[in-house]
Simulated assay, not measured.
Amino acid sequence: MALDSRTAIALISIVFALQSVPLILVYLLANQYKGINYWLIGNVLIAVGYFLVSLRGVIIDFFSITIANIISILGLSLLGLGVSRFTQQVYPRYFILALNAIWLVIHLHFTYINDNIIIRIINYSGIGSIIFIFAAYQLLSYKDKRLIISIRFTAIVFLCSASLFLIRIIVVLLNNYSNPLFDNSLSQTLLQISYLIMSFLLTVGLVSMISQRLYEDLRTLAIYDFLTETLNRRAMQLEINKEIAYFNRRKEQFALILMDIDRFKSINDNYGHDCGDLVLQHFTRTIKNNIRKEDALGRWGGEEFLILSRGSNVEDALILAERLRSAIESEKVITGHTIIKYTLSLGVAVYGIHGTTQEQLVKAADKALYEAKNSGRNQVAIATVFL
């Protein structure tokens, strides 16, 4: 049994309107993410546009044809632009404006000069497919691996929706419809049902991308220090516990290097806390550039930082610590007309030699750091052997 096309168009309008509700909720929860407002407004515009189309013959043609199509195209455009904003990629404002301008010229010509509904449908579907293909391309080229599942799902939905637009063009061209908009044939029925499904899946994809990013960002806040973008103390403790468990299985040593910026309080007192923050950020960048990817770096507290050096024995750890000390000594922080030079003291402890628990190992590294400080700063000290 064929679905009445006017009813199907009205249903699509209702679906888009209802789908605005979850977008409103996620916008209220995560309005720090760009693009959500575009998707929300786009959904509302598409809902209004389709509703006006469903009233063709009931209200004047200017509203049910021209205004309805303008609103719908703007809605589709906002869905595409929302992807650019959300993924923080090139914002194709002028590209979308050009597409809309081309569409509008063709639409007006084949509405008021040479009335041809088939050309209008091809025009609308063609522009819609281009916008959705571009949105899918931007999603698939997005590099944030944390969102890969929701990103790919949404990209596939955009591509499927673009395919429906193209299929609609083919169906209209292959069939001699007197009124292709409200034709009740099986092909039109299947297309309308497919539109309903894709519109629902598209909202699912958009909401899942927002939810996944929110989850990942909250997870990042839970394990990373905001200022230095290093692991926080709790996360480092978990990393050390994992490494101890790995040692118990494989007997592979690892080292802790506890570091403290020398006379950091004087930097804050003399130059201000903003400069102190710049020093901390400069420090962590320098350290990251001089350790391996498999090593973990975390802020242990204040100006103290801890490195978990995997697979390192005493000699390896001392070489690394000396390299870090030398790297910091040769660096300087320039802010405005101010040049700040600073040094670093380090304490080294190796698991199995200087301790057999996390508490013992950290305490050993801390004592070694204290020795380096008391011996004149800007040097490396090794912990005493654990008995």
Rank of each mutant, 00 (worst) to 15 (best):
V21R: 06
T343S: 13
L45G: 12
A10C: 07
K34Y: 10
L227G: 06
I121H: 10
V26T: 06
D183L: 08
A17M: 15
A10G: 05
G336T: 13
M259A: 05
L218S: 14
K293A: 12
I167Q: 04
S309T: 03
N100W: 00
R377H: 10
L76V: 14
L369M: 08
D61E: 09
M198G: 09
G75V: 05
G302I: 05
L361V: 05
D225T: 00
L369G: 04
G128F: 10
A372H: 07
I267T: 04
V362W: 10
K332P: 02
R152S: 08
V333Q: 06
I210E: 05
S5Y: 09
I167D: 04
N232F: 12
D217Y: 13
L191K: 12
A365Y: 05
I353D: 03
D295N: 11
L202T: 01
Q188H: 09
L306F: 13
Q281H: 11
I117A: 04
L25W: 04
V348D: 00
Y370I: 01
V26G: 01
R6L: 11
F305N: 03
F158L: 11
L104Y: 10
T189P: 08
W39R: 08
T154R: 05
E216K: 13
I70P: 06
A155E: 00
T111M: 08
I328Y: 11
V48W: 08
Y271M: 07
L104N: 02
T189W: 11
I340F: 11
Y195D: 01
I127V: 15
N100G: 12
I193E: 04
L140Q: 09
I113R: 03
L387I: 04
D274K: 14
R263H: 15
D262H: 03
N100D: 01
S375T: 02
H273Y: 15
S345N: 06
D115G: 00
H354P: 12
K288Q: 14
G75F: 15
I149P: 02
L361Y: 12
F386D: 07
E229D: 04
K373L: 04
I70G: 09
G336Y: 12
E371H: 07
L278Y: 11
N289S: 15
G347I: 00
F200S: 05
F110L: 02
Y94E: 00
Y91A: 01
R234H: 12
N241Q: 12
Y215F: 15
I339P: 03
